[in-house]
């Protein structure tokens, strides 16, 4: 579904990603593991169109997307839940969700959004209770749920999440990953970047280990969990 070839990206003169290669098959729950500064966020931003890559190609369902603006990539079916949640604090939960479907509401309204709205609320029942509350008043866990729900409003086929466990209590992290695993079981393709390798590898099917802007190891989540190097560096065992 996603093919990343020789991706290079960075900020100004600081190149962060050097020659990144990896691919994701349809229906896969994939984890991108790496330490702080390894280039996880840069990778996801590059794929989502927030950052224009310096070189390399990204193919989504066979179409090159590395030069497209963020809105076009979203319409193609690839959504990103940004690091730190970034919900629209002053807007209500309902408005946050509608903004997630912006490309389907403006300029023409797509009737499918109402169905997606219902689906998202079924996935996150807590949000239904808080529809008219400003998003800024939600707890950290609820905000993470809202950020995921907002991204789902565009009906993506590949959902990317940047550090969904950041700043959340272990129990809430567990809940977030359970929801993700559920979405994956229903056929959604997922790419999750995580410093918290324990949680990510417990739920994902596949993993890629990112170090200094390069993928240094790939495999099934089980093989990575059992790998002595990964255990030492990322699982703290």
């Amino acid at each position: 579904m996603l093919e990343v070839r020789s991706l290079r990206a960075g900020y100004g003169r600081a190149q962060v990603l050097h020659d990144l290669h990896f691919s994701i098959a349809a229906g896969e729950f994939c984890a991108l593991i790496g330490a702080n500064g390894a280039g996880k966020s840069t990778t996801l931003k590059g794929l989502a169109g927030l950052l224009r890559p310096i070189g390399g190609t990204v193919q989504f369902d066979g179409e090159p997307i590395e030069r497209l603006p963020a809105a076009r990539i979203l319409r193609a079916g690839l959504a990103l839940v940004p690091e730190g949640r970034r919900v629209f604090g002053p807007l209500s939960v309902r408005d946050n969700l509608q903004m997630g479907a912006f490309t389907r509401l403006f300029p023409r309204k797509d009737p499918g959004t109402a169905r997606q709205f219902e689906f998202v609320l079924e996935t996150f029942p807590r949000l239904r209770e808080r529809l008219d509350q400003p998003a800024g008043t939600l707890s950290g866990g609820e905000q993470q749920m809202l950020a995921i729900a907002r991204a789902l409003m565009s009906s993506p086929r590949l959902l990317m999440l940047d550090e969904p466990s950041m700043g959340l209590a272990p129990l809430v992290v567990q809940q977030v990953f359970e929801v993700l695993a559920n979405l994956a079981r229903n056929g959604l393709t997922l790419l999750v970047s995580e410093q918290n390798a324990t949680a990510a590898l417990a739920f994902a099917d596949h993993g890629h280990v990112l170090e200094a802007g390069r993928i240094v190891q790939s495999g099934t989540a089980r093989s990575l969990r059992d790998d002595p190097k990964v255990r030492e560096a990322y699982l703290g065992i």
């Binding site: 989502a48 927030l50 603006p69 963020a70 809105a71 979203l74 319409r75 959504a79 990103l80 940004p82 970034r86 919900v87 629209f88 604090g89 002053p90 807007l91 408005d95 946050n96 509608q98 903004m99 997630g100 912006f102 490309t103 509401l105 403006f106 950020a147 907002r150 991204a151 565009s154």
Partner: peptide, 22 residues
């Protein structure tokens, strides 16, 4: 929808871009 999109951009420009709001 446009007015709320403008508030979304003001609150979180990057997240708004991820929602496809230019």
């Amino acid at each position: 929808i446009l007015g709320r999109a403008m508030r979304a951009v003001a609150a979180q420009p990057e997240a708004a871009a991820l929602c496809g709001i230019d």
